[in-house]
Every structure is written in C-alpha cells, then in structure tokens.
C-alpha cells in the first residue's frame, strides 16, 4: 500500500485517478478499521489532511451553513456559532463515536462511506443539505437523496473528493437527531432518526424526517412526515411498523425491534424538535 499526502485538491484527484484502488484517507477512523479487517485492500491511501486549510471550515451566510468536508466531529460539537436551526448536527456529533474518534473523524468521511446508519447521513438528509464534490471534470453538487445509492455505495466517481456540504437555514425551523443504541456510551446506532421542522403558519408544520439503519441507505419517509406533521404518532408507529423491512443480518437488533423502535424514535425526535421550535 502506498501513502500519499497531496498538498492540493488537484493533486489529490490526480493521484486517485492514477492509482487504481486508491482511497481517500481523512480521519481514518473508518478506513483503518476496514483495512485491518480486510474489508478493503487499498493499493494506496490519499491522505487529504494537508487540504485542511481549504476543506476544514464552518461558515455562515444569510441562509446557509457551509461545512467543509474535513471539519472534524469535535469541530461541530464545540462550534459556538452553530445556528439553532441545525442543532441536529450537534446531536449527531454528541453521540458520534467517542472523544478520540471525534477528534479525527470528519463529516466528509462519515458521509463518503454511505453507511446506512451513519450519524450525519440522516441528519444532513433531513436538513435538505447538498453535498459538493470535486473531480477531474470540475465540481458538482448533489442532494443527499441523490448521493446515497445503497449500502456502502455513494454517487461518487473515481477521482472525486467530497469538498463540503451546504445546509439551508430555514427561518422558523428546528431540528433534532436521535438514535437508539444498545449501551449509553460509545456505540453504533441500532437505528437513528433526524427531523427538521418548519413553521409554515400558525397551524401547519413542514416536516422532513430521515431514518438511518432501517434500509440499505438513509431514507426519507414522506408518509411518515405527513403523519408527524399532524402529530399522529400512533399513525407513524403503525406506518413504520407495517412498511419498514430492515435486513435480518443486523448485529444490533432484530428487524422486529427496528420496526417497533422506528415510530417511537420518530415521536421522541419530533417532540424535541418541536420544543426547540418553540425556543
């Protein structure tokens, strides 16, 4: 295995294209684990941490939050200026791995693996964020829906690098992320749920609800959103129980548990988001 530490994005892209089987190394908290287990056998790793100057940022504009792909989870957890609309990012950061992992792991890395239960996958999906990619043919931007293709499969070409995320900040909105886990400390989620609420008028709420680890990729469930908007929690539970079809091979919970948990988790997540909406 070769190790490269390119000093520019262009160089990184070139190395990725030149070396078949090369992969990007950011925080390494997934790559190193997968490499050790033999799940991946990269011919080369392209350490992009020298691009931190370019890709490690959190910036606010009037109506958007821009997050660089090399932003660490600790950066997100402790950023004093995180707008309240996107508190779900902090929720996700808080339960992500553990301190040492958060210090290394990046938001880009968490997304790039297209793991169905990744903390920031459902979070960014619920927040209607876009992902920005750079490759040899220039840049492109995708919705999170379009980015996730299936378990471990992302809509990325060879030689592409995730450069950042753009998160809309809707006025009168709030968000929350929650997970179900086996233990209270460091653990992977059994399932997770992220919700964004927006006040439409005095009576109506717009809801975006995303679920992780219930299908082959993080998914929005539009029917559930509608029921949540009506606060029909029993309806949500019934819907998710009846329609979800989680794989039976999970080591964290049986499909039955996931089906039972999903609605309850959605209800909790919604209620916290609602409280946050109230201020």
């Amino acid at each position: 295995m070769r190790y490269f530490a390119p000093a520019s994005l262009e160089e990184a892209i070139n190395i990725l294209l030149e070396h078949e089987g090369a992969i990007i190394l950011a925080g390494g908290t997934d790559v190193m684990v997968e490499k050790r287990s033999g799940k991946i056998e990269p011919s080369a790793v392209v350490d992009i941490k020298k691009l931190e100057g370019e890709l490690r940022y959190m910036r606010l504009s009037d109506d958007r939050l821009e997050i660089g792909s090399l932003t660490t989870i600790t950066d997100i957890l402790h950023w004093g200026k995180l707008p309240h609309e996107v508190t779900s990012l902090k929720d996700a950061a808080r339960v992500f791995g553990c301190h040492e992992i958060r210090n290394r792991a990046t938001i880009g890395g968490n997304i790039a693996h297209a793991s169905p239960g990744a903390e920031f996958a459902s979070t960014l999906l619920a927040l209607d964020a876009t992902v920005q990619l750079a490759g040899k043919d220039g840049k492109r931007e995708l919705s999170m829906e379009d980015f996730f293709l299936g378990p471990g499969k992302a809509n990325m070409e060879r030689g592409e690098v995730i450069t950042g995320f753009s998160v809309p900040l809707l006025s009168g909105s709030s968000s929350c992320y929650m997970r179900a886990s086996r233990v209270d400390g460091m653990d992977l989620a059994i399932i997770n749920c992220a919700i964004r609420l927006q006040d439409l008028d005095a009576e109506n709420l717009a809801v975006r609800a995303a679920f992780g680890a219930v299908a082959g990729k993080p998914i929005r469930i539009v029917e559930a959103e509608k029921l949540l908007a009506r606060e029909d929690f029993e309806g949500v539970k019934r819907l998710l129980f009846d329609t979800l079809n989680p794989r039976a091979t999970s080591l964290r919970a049986a499909p039955m548990s996931k089906k039972l948990l999903a609605g309850n988790l959605a209800e909790d997540t919604y209620k916290i988001a609602k409280e946050r909406l109230a201020g």
Partner: peptide, 18 residues
C-alpha cells in the same frame, strides 16, 4: 490513546505516516 498536538487520539487507527 495518546496525545497528538495535545489532543487525545487512538493510535491504533492512525498511520505513522500521517
């Protein structure tokens, strides 16, 4: 766990090259 530039990290999942 070791400290790298003052921050704790897990040395088993970091390449020395980094």
């Amino acid at each position: 766990a070791v400290l790298v530039d003052g921050e704790p990290v897990r040395s088993c999942i970091i390449l020395a090259a980094e």
